[in-house]
């Protein structure tokens, strides 16, 4: 009887805890850290293409080749590879954030939140895709 009451309170507080936890998003997992590190390392190679306008921030939360003609022919394969790798990491990042918070179905919303923030935080001179899908230079 006594410990049943105790159990009752434990259950109550456990729920209260989970409600408070919902206010924040968990991003400190090994998978997310690894993805961040991989993207950070790649950024040094991608940023010159962001500045030249060859690659831009797409509205779907990915990066995309905006103008391949700005890249010398010999480098184009390399750019396509970088873009594909970056998009693989970004997709995995959105999925991992949703999963780490117990809601895999949030992946699309995580993606659209990031899409907006990548564009907002893009440096002046970079190309970004607006809501209508047109490319604009920031």
């Amino acid at each position: 009887m006594r410990h049943l009451t105790k159990l009752f309170w434990v259950v109550l507080f456990a729920f209260a805890g989970s409600v408070f936890a919902a206010a924040d998003l968990e991003v400190n997992t090994p998978a997310i850290s690894a993805l961040k590190a991989s993207m950070q390392a790649r950024h040094n190679r991608l940023s010159s293409y962001y500045f030249s306008g060859a690659v831009g921030q797409a509205r779907d939360g990915n990066v995309a080749v905006h103008d391949a003609s700005l890249v010398p022919l010999a480098e184009r394969q390399n750019v396509n590879g970088l873009v594909a790798e970056e998009n693989r990491d970004r997709t995995a990042l959105y999925r991992e954030i949703a999963r780490a918070n117990g809601h895999p179905e949030w992946e699309a919303e995580v993606r659209s939140t990031f899409a907006q923030r990548w564009i907002d935080k893009a440096s002046g001179g970079w190309w970004v895709q607006n809501a209508g899908g047109a490319w604009v230079r920031k």
Partner: peptide, 26 residues
């Protein structure tokens, strides 16, 4: 209650997006 009240935490998501983008783009 938990099931009903758990919606996508947009503000928190924006906060973590900003943090991660700051780190990735240094």
């Amino acid at each position: 209650c938990v099931t009903i009240n758990i919606y996508f935490p947009a503000a928190a998501a924006e906060k973590v997006a900003d943090k991660i983008i700051d780190e990735v783009w240094q």
